[in-house]
Amino acid sequence: MNKLTERQKTILMLVVREYIDSGQPVGSKLLVKNYRMDISSATVRNEMRALTEMGYLRTTSGRIPTEDGYRYFVSQVMHQADLPNAIQRTISHQFTQAHSSIEQWMTLAASVLAHQTQIVSLITAPRNEQVIFKHVELISTQGRQVLMVLVFAGGDISQQVLTLAETIPQGRLSLVAERLNQSLKSLSEEAISALPSRTDLLEKDILLLIQQEMHQRGDGSAGEIYMDGMANILAEPSFADSDGGRRTLRFFDERSRLQDLLSSTIADSSIGGVQVLIGGDEGWEELRQCSMVLARYGVPGQAVGTLGVLGPMRMHYARTIPTVRFMADLLSGLITENLSGE
């Protein structure tokens, strides 16, 4: 891309901002009138023509931004604005009213993000970057069935119903759980694998199931996805009235691909760092008409997740970016408090 003059930078920023606000192609006369520019519309038109030749704008009864035009705009507004204090206080107050449970935080965060940005929110539950055992409970339910409840460092919980070869009294189940809790507490899967083999067959079987669950949770995939705001996307004509939009909507139903997207695109980002993907930056063809604003949250090395929004390229970046950043910082604080209170 050619280097822009200061005038071209100003005009490009105004075109993108005007198009985001109105959704209509932008003409030179409109810019001069709306922004009281001290140059003629002919000069603005010449500069817009140059920006088009450089790939920042395209012509359609006026000028609209290209993907590169949006990318330039985002690079300029990325750190310019904070979320207004009144909105920060409102959001923080909503979380003080919520119970201290990961699931409720995720559901509320998805709802708040969708409401504040008016597009679709996507949040993955925090997962341990290194899965660490904390506690196991074995509860006799009916006949040979036993409920195994696994708790990992960071508050992540797994529950599964086991069908044993024979009925085991609750007293023995509790004794096995107690022995495992004493020997496995605060250990990683690797450390557990290095322990001496068990002689008790039931204890050995339960230990194998624990290791399998820890291995599955440590495979680097994103956690459970919480979504909200689908109605916001359905109201967008660019999604409802095009093949590309319909492909994007179908993409939301493929949870495994969504998890892959969220885990791969944000994996190398720092906690609280915002990443903006425009027009399928990462090669996701279904998202060619979309932009995503994503951030990691949590505590490095302990429990991390991804949050963000997905919507049309014509989204309000100057409002969306600080909203995502604030929500990431807020959830990181909550996760930190939850870990310190263990």
Results as ranks from 00 to 15, higher is better:
residue 129 E to C: 06
residue 142 Q to M: 15
residue 181 N to C: 05
residue 167 T to V: 09
residue 128 N to Q: 13
residue 211 Q to L: 14
residue 139 I to L: 14
residue 192 I to K: 02
residue 182 Q to I: 10
residue 182 Q to K: 13
residue 202 L to E: 11
residue 159 Q to C: 08
residue 222 A to N: 01
residue 217 R to Q: 12
residue 155 G to I: 13
residue 193 S to M: 14
residue 160 Q to L: 15
residue 196 P to D: 06
residue 172 R to W: 08
residue 140 S to R: 12
residue 192 I to E: 05
residue 210 I to F: 08
residue 188 S to H: 02
residue 121 S to R: 02
residue 136 V to E: 01
residue 154 G to F: 08
residue 192 I to V: 07
residue 181 N to H: 10
residue 216 Q to I: 07
residue 164 L to G: 01
residue 187 L to A: 04
residue 216 Q to A: 13
residue 137 E to D: 12
residue 166 E to I: 06
residue 163 T to C: 10
residue 155 G to Y: 08
residue 126 P to A: 12
residue 174 S to E: 12
residue 139 I to R: 12
residue 140 S to I: 03
residue 147 L to E: 08
residue 181 N to V: 06
residue 218 G to W: 09
residue 207 L to F: 15
residue 144 R to M: 07
residue 146 V to M: 06
residue 115 H to F: 10
residue 184 L to G: 01
residue 136 V to S: 03
residue 187 L to V: 03
residue 209 L to Q: 15
residue 212 Q to T: 05
residue 164 L to A: 05
residue 200 D to G: 05
residue 134 K to A: 13
residue 143 G to T: 05
residue 145 Q to W: 11
residue 189 E to D: 13
residue 125 A to E: 15
residue 210 I to Y: 06
residue 174 S to P: 00
residue 153 A to H: 11
residue 125 A to C: 06
residue 132 I to T: 00
residue 163 T to F: 14
residue 150 L to W: 06
residue 114 A to D: 01
residue 220 G to V: 07
residue 157 I to M: 13
residue 147 L to W: 07
residue 131 V to Q: 01
residue 122 L to H: 03
residue 161 V to M: 12
residue 187 L to Q: 02
residue 168 I to E: 11
residue 148 M to G: 04
residue 122 L to F: 13
residue 114 A to E: 03
residue 221 S to W: 11
residue 128 N to P: 01
